[in-house]
Nucleic acid binder design. Structure first.
Length: 379
RNA sequence: GGACAGGUGGCGGAGCGGUCAAUCGCAGCAGACUGUAAAUCUGCCGCCCAUCGGGCUACGAAGGUUCAAAUCCUUCCCUGUCCA
């Protein structure tokens, strides 16, 4: 157990002796986060379509994500600071992790330029130029007041040549060192995580991780995944990297995954994950259930009086039929997004709770085997 | 009774001699979505076989002109607006 410094203390509670799976408690200035954890994504200081009260009471999520690039542009981090910080601004009392904008280096690749100094974005809102540097990105996140900040990284595309990945990864590591030097001078009560890159090259991943470990960070992330690569590659990169990261620090794989993939990352020794899939897919009518994916607009649900997922205890599944949800979706009613998002996130969080329980009870290998044999509804 | 304007695929609505099985929108059917430029995007959508592709029937009805007609002409039927 590391001491409470830099706003974060990670307490390892149990470790699966067969796999690398871990269960722990992450103590943040805004509450305790039980790990392994799935973090709902609230890019623009809102988990789309849900009220914080629902995220807290219905989902019991302990930590959510937000985004530095988006909040920097709108409403502006200084405004958020003036209004008392992100927690107060969005009325979310629990923990918040902010991504740095590194993902936007990939997702907004057409409107940005990476230089040695940092990333020059042309705002997707109005075209204005904004330079993000390793230092400025830390400052922005300090202004936002998130519990866990992420270093500025370059999320490189897939496929990419080895040379391109190698030089990009070296730069990302230089940025991480700069970010940490700056961060430590600020003496903030917020954690900062560096991000392992290295594309789909395991040796570059290992090299990168080994270097970042020198920073003695309060936690470590594995990034650069979910950029279009085959899923077995994503998992392979995690498995190559996680064992090199400090046992006593939380490990975060950024941007994953599908419901059935979550347990695989946990088995690989991962403590934290996030993904837009449950929330975005919900709004697009794709619902995750213990019986698999339900595309609610399909004609087969027109007269389906049953609950979305009989095995789910969420508000949506307790109170509404598939036929009603289908109606709401086709009628483009706002309530659909609310009910669908609530369910999908509950589904993800429940999966993680079951996984965590299994680890604590020493039952994880059996759960993993059952999930892989598809005998279990972790999908 | 008269004068105009129209009748196009489930609906709305383009097309006005060949490149038209026919733009587009809606509805319908299916698919995608992985650190959110996403309440978004993609495909199919006359019938039959089919992998490319091929065949058939079609633009109110019936005739006609033409190498060629949803597009031009004639008659008829129907709809809307206006005038008696």
């Amino acid at each position: 157990m590391s001491e409470l410094k830099e706003g974060l203390r990670f307490e390892l509670q149990a470790q699966c002796p067969v796999t690398g799976a871990r269960a722990g408690l992450m103590h943040t200035p805004h509450g305790i986060v039980e790990t392994p954890v799935f973090m709902p994504v609230g890019t623009q200081a809102t988990v789309k379509s849900l009220m914080p009260r629902q995220i807290e009471e219905e989902l019991d999520a302990k930590i959510i994500l937000s985004n530095t690039y988006h909040l920097y542009l709108r409403p502006g981090h200084e405004i958020v600071r003036q209004l008392g910080g992100l927690h107060k601004f969005m009325n979310w009392p629990r923990a918040i992790l902010t991504d740095s904008g590194g993902f936007q280096v990939w997702s907004l690749s057409k409107i940005r330029k990476v230089t040695e100094e940092g990333v020059l974005f042309h705002s997707h809102l109005n075209g204005d130029r904004h330079l993000f540097t390793p230092e400025s990105t830390v400052d922005t996140q300090i202004a936002l007041g998130s519990d866990i900040m992420m270093v500025l990284d370059e999320c490189i595309e897939y496929p990419a040549t080895r040379d391109a990945v190698a030089s990009s990864t070296r730069r990302t590591n230089r940025w991480a060192a700069q970010a940490f030097a700056h961060y430590r001078r600020q003496n903030a009560n917020q954690a900062l995580f560096p991000i392992v890159q290295g594309g789909m090259y395991t040796d570059l991943r290992r090299e990168c991780a080994a270097e970042l470990v020198e920073l003695d960070a309060p936690g470590y992330a594995i990034g650069g995944l979910s950029v279009g690569e085959p899923r077995d590659l994503s998992l392979a990169m995690v498995e190559a990297t996680a064992p090199l990261l400090p046992v006593a620090k939380p490990r975060y794989v950024m941007g994953v995954g599908k419901p059935e993939e979550l347990i695989e990352y946990v088995a690989g020794g991962i403590d934290m994950m996030d993904c837009v899939m449950p929330s975005r897919n919900a709004r697009n009518g794709c619902l995750f259930t213990s019986g698999g994916k339900v595309v609610i607009k399909n004609a087969q649900y027109r007269e389906d009086a049953g609950p979305l997922d009989p095995a789910c205890s969420c508000y949506t599944c307790r109170n509404f039929s598939r036929a009603y949800l289908r109606h709401l979706f086709l009628a483009e009613e706002i309530l659909f997004s609310v009910l669908a998002t609530l369910h999908n996130l509950k589904h993800y969080l429940d999966i993680m709770r079951r996984i965590r329980q299994a680890i604590l009870l020493g039952d994880f290998p059996r759960l993993l085997a059952a999930a892989r044999a598809a005998e279990l509804d972790l999908k």
